[in-house]
Design a binder for these strands. Structure first.
Lengths: 340, 340
DNA sequence: CTGAAAGCGCTAACAA
DNA sequence: TTGTTAGCGCTTTCAG
């Protein structure tokens, strides 16, 4: 004879069935709100459920149905992502909407190498794709509903919701140009991210369209960290012919640049115009409020959950490629170019 | 006859067994690294697994064993938590350690009312307890390994890892007093959080120990938001007899206060000394670097995962109540009191 | 060293 | 309207 491994006092559907004098099937029907249950039985079962504080095992449910309400959020764990404003906004947006839709949120900080075990998750949101394209492809051909945010992927049959980094960057640089600046530098973010690459591209495009020659010395690449922003800023400001304006790929780096400028005796915006990207609230703490580009992070996050939910419930199968617009936020850190 | 519902091409342990000519039991043994498998069989199975890209269903595993490697992180969704530096640091610390320990992280932003379905989670970390005491008690008597962070709970048989908010606050206020300040105000955080309450208490205690009478008009309560910080700051600074120093319960609020002071023509630290709490990196972006209290958030987060992991693997059952020390970070925003 | 068979808690097809 | 029964994919006795 078998012995139950652990006298796991956890109550199951069977206990409920016994206590209410019906079959487990009926209990199951009550749980799943089948209309075809006699009112009397339903009430009885419901009472017992309450009494016993029964909660169905989601595990067993998922195993039996093959469906799962788990949304996995896959965030690549590259250097610096967590120093960004971005990650938290994403988690916040996705987390609150998941809670509202009764979806479980599994947070997966991936090193990009380790394959993800998809069994048991109902859908996946890839926050950007940094070296983990394979993971997305695996998910795709395992037939798991999934989508990518913050990265516009053309060559994969996958939905994506991205932000118009290119346009946003182009706009802000155009703005600087409209103020009369010609010597405009760019401190870029980590170019393994599409966002940083597109911002750089937008910068270049704006210059080009305005017939301003690109000066390679004015473009400095960083990993988004404040440390590298500092080095870049020092380098730029100390140049024999320093730029009159700098477009920085993130607000947090821009703030560091502002600090460096102050240390070197430069007054923003009089001696140097400065623009960031993100609309990070701390841009308002700066001595001079930071001009920046607002990106709809929360919106992107929430759209992704909505979309994924549709995919998961098979209400939709068409893939969608969306680019959300950005908005230039003019504050005080930029000024008309003054050649004196 | 039955028809398989969906020709779910997902490969299972059975497929692996067939393809390698052994029983599923043997495959299971290989998966679980039982030593008692002939090397030959093991290799064969391992090969097939690789070939078929088989990944065991964690669902089925959990159902069969009753064990689960899922860690639920329960974060109460009160107003303003996500505007804090705190939340992201927590998620970052917990997330990376979970990944390292091969634990799945379930993120649960709770409204505190809805009971949590614990079935299938192996352990729970409650990030603070804000109105959701019941959830913790439920988990406790469901016998699920769990602990509380950022809240020292005396009257519950639950492990907790908290931060010495009281001591931290007392220290910083002592520091202000040592600089000669006597009119010291406090802008508190949301007192539903233990952290805010303890910081207020620390403030009071420091005054008391130094025989400085508490002036109720100098204590202003907020919800941690910048908006309320602004109002508080305006009120304090415009008082007929304004404080010469303000201890603010969070760095982000302190930065807002600094902005307000500047707007009102006050120079920090000459006219007003300012201290925060958190050691939020943006404290360094301020025109005047913010003096603050550093709290070991990452450490708290990581300790909690370690501890929970021990609890989950039954290697430990003793509950632990830990308070981690803080550290005063003196920067530039405070100055000796100058009565002129 | 290996396999058959009995669960884990639930859902769903079928029959009543 | 309800119950019976066969799985879902895995682990774990127990008996070779």
């Amino acid at each position: 004879m078998r012995i139950k491994k652990i006298p796991s006092k956890s109550i199951s559907i069977t206990d409920v069935a016994k206590a209410s004098g019906v079959s487990i099937t009926t209990v199951s029907r009550v749980i799943n709100k089948f209309p075809s249950v006699k009112e009397e039985s339903r009430i009885k079962v419901l009472n017992v459920i309450k009494q016993l504080k029964f909660q169905p095992s989601v595990l067993a449910q998922r195993l039996a149905t093959g469906r799962s309400n788990v949304v996995a959020l896959v965030i690549p764990r590259y250097e610096g992502i967590f120093y960004s404003f971005y990650a938290l906004e994403l988690i916040r947006g996705i987390g609150t909407l998941c809670a509202a839709l009764k979806l479980d949120l599994l947070l997966h900080l991936t090193d990009s190498r380790t394959p993800i075990n998809f069994k048991g998750v109902g859908g996946i949101i890839f926050a950007d794709i940094i070296g983990n394209r394979q993971q997305a492809m695996d998910a795709l051909d395992a037939g798991i509903p999934c989508l990518v945010i913050n990265n516009y992927i053309e060559d994969l049959e996958i939905s994506c919701i991205a932000i118009d980094n290119l346009g946003g960057a182009e706009n802000v640089v155009n703005y600087l140009i409209s103020l009369g600046h010609k010597r405009i530098a760019h401190i870029s973010g980590d170019l393994i991210t599409q966002a940083a690459a597109k911002r750089l591209e937008g910068y270049k495009r704006a210059l080009e369209k305005n017939k301003i020659a690109l000066n390679q010395d004015y473009v400095i690449k960083t990993d988004y960290s404040r440390g590298q922003a500092r080095e870049a800023a020092e380098h730029l400001i100390k140049m024999p012919k320093p730029p009159s304006a700098i477009f920085v790929a993130s607000d947090s780096m821009a703030l560091e640049v502002m600090t460096v400028a102050r240390e070197l005796g430069k007054v923003v915006p009089r001696d140097l115009s400065l623009a960031g990207f993100d609309d990070n609230p701390s841009g308002l703490d700066a001595p001079v409020a930071l001009t920046t580009v607002r990106q709809p992070l929360i919106k992107m996050a929430q759209e992704s959950v909505k979309e994924l939910n549709l995919l998961m419930s098979k209400k939709k199968t068409k893939i969608e490629k969306i680019i959300l617009p950005t908005e230039l936020v003019v504050r005080e850190s930029c000024q008309s170019y003054n050649p004196d």
